[in-house]
Amino acid sequence: MSNKEWPLWEVFIRSKQGLNHKHVGSLRAPDATLALDNARDVYTRRSEGISIWVVESNYIHASDPSDADSFFEPSDTKVYRHPTFYDVPDGIKHM
């Protein structure tokens, strides 16, 4: 068995022009070129995409799910950021 595994890559696919790239999964590949080729073969066998991004998983930084409550708390308390917070007088149709 090889002592050096191929690095892990995260795969993001733009399904059509006008939409953003979306995470679809991961794969292993020795470099970015082969990661793109493999991503095409593994994740777009049925025309699921027109553009692919691959990012080595090592470079992804994630928020900690156990801190999610306090991390996202600042926005949870600010109901006035939503239009539904405001009273609109009767008779006003489009606002």
């Binding site: 090889s2 050096k4 020795p30 470099d31």
Partner: peptide, 14 residues
């Protein structure tokens, strides 16, 4: 295995 090792070695060299 040799193919995988060669691909890795090539990527490292580049």
């Amino acid at each position: 295995m040799w193919v995988r090792e060669a691909a890795m070695a090539y990527a490292e060299k580049r």
